[in-house]
Amino acid sequence: MSRSQKKIDKINFEIFTLTYGEIVTTLLKDYEDVEEVNNQLDKMGYSMGIRMVDEFLAFTGLNKCSDFRDTADAIANKAFPLFLGFPAGIQNFDEKKKEFSLVLDQNPLIEFVELPPKYKGLFYCNILCGIIRGSLEMLQIDVEAKYKKCVLRGDERSEIFISLKQDPKKGDK
């Protein structure tokens, strides 16, 4: 089960970035509570994530991840470049607690974006958390994915914290 699809259509990241910006703008107009916008973004991401896994598996021909470290690697070094065009970094990997941080250094989504102070509670890229959660769930891996830091909020870098919720059913240890 290792042959992969030959190619995957690409588009310029600007198209994606601008579209995403419009969506966030629309949500901010619809909801007073920034936390609700975060939730909506997560929901949308989840719905996207569950539909993305098969394309990922078909293209990469990936086999079972033998441990959680492999899972982290697959997300950061295979899925991110494939779908978003850049790799993420893995930090603070804890094998015992089954958690790690995904560091986003070159995130194109936030290019040209400035967050006014009143939206301080917004996690602009929260859709990524939903995408990660949804796609891993399709692989029987239940995680919690939450933004810990975001450069748009003044932090020094953007970080998504991912932790395994329960013992995986198969494949991972």
Binding site: I8, D9, K10, I11, N12, F13, I15, F16, T19, Y20, I23, T26, L27, D30, Q40, M44, S47, M48, R51, M52, E55, L82, F83, L84, G85, F86, Q106, P108, I127
Partner: peptide, 23 residues
């Protein structure tokens, strides 16, 4: 830099669903 066409397409579909149901 490029992203996959599929992630844009899925994003748009979610946006359509969101607008339709929120309206």
């Amino acid at each position: 830099m490029s992203v996959s066409e599929s992630i844009w397409s899925l994003l748009l579909n979610e946006f359509v669903n969101y607008v339709v149901s929120s309206v």
